[in-house]
Simulated scan of single mutants.
Amino acid sequence: MIATCGVRTVPAAWIEQTRPGGLILTTVGGWLGSSELARLTVHDDGTATGPLLSGQVSFMLARPHMPPALGLLPDLSESKEREAIIGTDALNDWTSRFIVQIAAPHAQRLTMQRDGRTEHVLVDVESGSWAALYEENGRWIVRQDGPNALWDAAEEQLGRWHAAGTTALEEFTVSVTPQGQTINW
């Protein structure tokens, strides 16, 4: 099966409709705008696994995989500040952005002018979580709130990836089971 649209997660129906040993070729990505082509082999047990093929391949997301409307933004001043370990400049890199999508799969990104500075905001509409970062005197400051600390998750995932030697995307593996999808390196 060859999909000519992107998905956030590989639909279970695609695996069900592909015989064991068959291949699914699809672009897997997220709402932060980084995606990669995955080549998945379907197995007898109803799962599928395979590598990312790299190359910064991008297709328009399938309608069911589009992000929800942001709606009314939360009060971005409602939390404590801390110095960020990693700044949002990491999101300028395709691979780093892909890694952050693994950590915060429901996050959307926007940039806004607030209090005389540029703030970079990640918002997870579903959970109500958010993180806002800005640069001040050469260091990044983060505020976040909600049930999921989005930037903590991003920093932790990026830290693990750096500790592993910044593995190239073509060394990542996508696994799809009835419990969901995981992407590992």
Rank of each mutant, 00 (worst) to 15 (best):
residue 41 T to S: 11
residue 66 M to Y: 01
residue 64 P to G: 01
residue 26 T to W: 01
residue 59 F to Q: 08
residue 50 G to K: 12
residue 58 S to H: 03
residue 59 F to N: 05
residue 45 D to Q: 14
residue 40 L to I: 10
residue 42 V to Q: 06
residue 77 S to L: 11
residue 69 A to Q: 13
residue 64 P to C: 02
residue 88 T to Y: 13
residue 81 E to F: 01
residue 38 A to M: 07
residue 56 Q to V: 04
residue 99 I to H: 04
residue 77 S to R: 14
residue 95 T to V: 09
residue 77 S to T: 15
residue 100 V to N: 09
residue 66 M to E: 09
residue 17 Q to K: 08
residue 84 A to C: 02
residue 69 A to F: 10
residue 53 L to Y: 09
residue 19 R to Y: 04
residue 22 G to T: 08
residue 92 N to Q: 07
residue 70 L to C: 08
residue 33 G to E: 05
residue 79 S to L: 05
residue 23 L to Y: 02
residue 47 T to H: 12
residue 68 P to C: 09
residue 57 V to A: 10
residue 106 H to M: 09
residue 15 I to E: 08
residue 88 T to M: 13
residue 55 G to L: 04
residue 14 W to K: 13
residue 101 Q to F: 10
residue 99 I to C: 06
residue 35 S to Y: 01
residue 27 T to E: 05
residue 42 V to I: 14
residue 31 W to T: 05
residue 46 G to R: 13
residue 19 R to S: 14
residue 66 M to Q: 06
residue 52 L to I: 01
residue 102 I to T: 06
residue 62 A to V: 07
residue 107 A to Y: 08
residue 65 H to L: 11
residue 46 G to E: 12
residue 48 A to T: 14
residue 18 T to H: 07
residue 60 M to K: 15
residue 19 R to M: 05
residue 49 T to H: 14
residue 102 I to W: 03
residue 36 E to W: 07
residue 83 E to M: 01
residue 104 A to E: 03
residue 82 R to S: 06
residue 20 P to A: 04
residue 69 A to D: 12
residue 87 G to E: 04
residue 30 G to H: 09
residue 51 P to A: 07
residue 109 R to D: 03
residue 41 T to H: 13
residue 90 A to N: 00
residue 56 Q to Y: 03
residue 106 H to Y: 03
residue 82 R to T: 07
residue 85 I to S: 15
residue 86 I to D: 11
residue 15 I to K: 10
residue 74 P to W: 07
residue 87 G to D: 01
residue 37 L to Y: 08
residue 54 S to G: 08
residue 31 W to A: 07
residue 67 P to E: 05
residue 67 P to T: 12
residue 41 T to A: 10
residue 102 I to F: 05
residue 55 G to E: 04
residue 106 H to R: 14
residue 56 Q to L: 10
residue 108 Q to D: 02
residue 106 H to K: 15
residue 103 A to N: 14
residue 33 G to S: 14
residue 29 G to T: 09
residue 105 P to Q: 04
residue 81 E to Y: 11
residue 27 T to G: 00
residue 99 I to P: 13
residue 58 S to Y: 06
residue 61 L to R: 15
residue 47 T to F: 08
residue 39 R to L: 15
residue 33 G to Q: 03
residue 64 P to E: 00
residue 106 H to E: 11
residue 28 V to T: 02
residue 68 P to I: 04
residue 14 W to Q: 07
residue 22 G to H: 02
